[in-house]
Nucleic acid binder design. Structure first.
Lengths: 205, 205
DNA sequence: TTTTCGCTATGACATCTGTCACTGTTTTTG
DNA sequence: CAAAAACAGTGACAGATGTCATAGCGAAAA
């Protein structure tokens, strides 16, 4: 029987998932936490075979937990990240911080149980759908904006006009126009609206 | 016994929640769907007392389902939106489209069951935490766009120029300009970029 | 040191954008 | 039916937007 610490802020999701896992004959959710701090407390008090960790949480999020464990002397259980597609940007950081694998919340139950077994056995679990996505993002030519350009882009995605941006950043309107022009070129788009859309898509803002 | 259709894309969450609800002695999850289209299919085939509807889904999202039901002659069950704090911007649209209430996914189980009973009894359920947030955001009164305006707005949020939109929708550029002008007025913004941002924020696209 | 790069700035230019007024047709609604 | 919308269009206009060439300044890199 694999003892498991489940860390997830949404009550319904946590209870539901715990229930499902407990119905299996190999996994037993023996600890639950609804944020990172609680998780760390639970780890203080007893040992687990594995920790299922959500990324987005109040108080202390998934990355926070991983950081805390790295700086701690205590020997933590292997960690499987359970996250949504929307939050997958932080996965690279999570893996760098010592997580042993990641799966999407919309994974099938059977597959999740299999993943947990793999993690406990010391192997890594990288769900293909996510890996593909991350690789594709990395392959996509990285857009390098200067500090000023980033500022202007932020203003753009707040819907500001050139004149307004100029006032905000204490520049002439002409200067801002130049920056905008460079941003459009770097993002390979034709106008500010497309720039904002692309920036949102790429998570630049 | 209340028969319930549960619409939620994340498999684990859906199964877990169904399980929890079925453990109660008043609610029975008799249908499940992992996207809006499946939900509509299920509604075709049989009746339910209530539908629990997630907002963010692939294929056809929550708003899409509500729109489809509004344009349909069929008598749909009352709908309770179950969503996350992050997606709550679209709730105003959802309510305008006929949803009967909304709760957060991190609601307590007891409270959720109580909410479902209220909905089935014909009352509305507006979870205070969300209502407060929305009021604080001073969400403007429901924005009513015409069909054509919606089409143009969609084009706008794809980053199209007026000329491109005109070609796409088979209109003169002047006509498109007029439509854009009306959209800006209705959204109470100054230019197309702000319109796109607001449209995204309000879930109009 | 020389070069490169980021930032600032200006002026000119073509084009795009949004507003307004006004004219119609068609469809919906009271 | 009559009024009200939605839809399509035109022409004119002011202002916003984006491009380009050019140039000075300071800091960092070669």
């Amino acid at each position: 029987m694999i003892s498991c610490l489940l860390v997830e802020d949404q009550t319904l999701v946590r209870l539901g998932l715990a229930n499902l896992l407990n119905l299996s004959d190999v996994i037993c959710v023996e600890g639950q936490a609804e944020n990172g701090e609680e998780a760390l407390n639970q780890l203080e008090q007893r040992d687990f075979d594995v920790m299922l960790l959500d990324m987005r949480m109040p108080v202390l999020d998934g990355l926070g937990v991983l950081r805390a464990l790295q700086n701690s002397t205590k020997c933590a259980p292997p960690i499987l990240i359970i996250t949504t597609f929307e939050d997958c940007e932080v996965l690279v950081s999570a893996m760098a911080l010592g997580a042993k694998g990641y799966v999407l919340k919309n994974i099938e139950l059977e597959e999740l149980i299999e993943s947990i077994k793999q993690i406990v056995a010391g192997r890594k679990v990288l769900q293909p759908a996510l890996t593909d996505y991350l690789l594709q993002k990395q392959i996509s030519p990285q857009i390098e904006l200067t500090e000023k350009e980033r500022q202007v882009l932020t203003c753009l995605s707040l819907g500001m006009a050139n004149k307004t941006i100029a006032r905000n950043l204490h520049n002439s309107e002409g200067t801002i126009r130049n920056h905008v022009s460079h941003i459009l070129a770097k993002l390979e788009v034709q106008d500010r609206t497309q720039a904002v859309l692309k920036a949102i898509e790429l998570g630049l803002v």
